[in-house]
Computed example of a mutant assay.
Amino acid sequence: MTSRPQTMKPATAAKKLGIYLPATPESFQSGVVSRDELNALQSDPPEWLRSLRQNGPHPRPVVAAKLGISIGGLARAGLTDALTTAEIEEIKASAPSWLEHERATQAEVRREAARLKAEGR
Score class of each variant (00 low, 15 high):
Leu41Asn: 06
Gly56Arg: 02
Ile19Asp: 00
Gly73Cys: 08
Asp81Gly: 15
Pro5Phe: 08
Pro57Val: 01
Lys92Glu: 05
Pro25Arg: 02
Val109Arg: 14
Ala14Thr: 00
Asn55Phe: 14
Ala65Tyr: 03
Asp81Lys: 05
Ala107Val: 11
Pro25Ala: 05
Ser70Thr: 06
Gly18Lys: 08
Thr84Glu: 01
Asp36Asn: 13
Ala113Lys: 11
Thr2Gln: 12
Arg35Tyr: 05
Arg103Phe: 09
Glu26Thr: 04
Ala14Val: 00
Val32Leu: 08
Arg50Trp: 11
Ser97Ala: 15
Ser94Met: 10
Ser70His: 02
Ala118Gln: 14
Leu49Thr: 04
Leu79Trp: 03
Pro96Val: 07
Ser27Ile: 05
Arg60Ala: 05
Gly78Ser: 13
Ser97Trp: 12
Trp98His: 03
Val63Leu: 08
Ala65Lys: 03
Ser43Gly: 14
Pro61Ile: 05
Arg121Ala: 14
Pro61Gly: 03
Thr2Ala: 14
Ile69Arg: 03
Leu67Gly: 01
Ala23Tyr: 01
Thr7Asn: 09
Pro45Asp: 07
Arg60Gly: 07
Pro5Thr: 15
Lys92Leu: 13
Leu17Phe: 01
Thr105Cys: 06
Ala86Pro: 01
Arg60Glu: 03
Leu52Ala: 07
Ser27Asp: 08
Glu89Ala: 14
Asp44Asn: 15
Ala65Met: 10
Met1Thr: 08
Ala64Gln: 02
Val109Trp: 10
Ser70Phe: 07
Ala40Trp: 02
Thr105Val: 13
Val63Cys: 13
Gln29Ala: 09
Asp36Val: 09
Gly31Leu: 09
Gly18Glu: 04
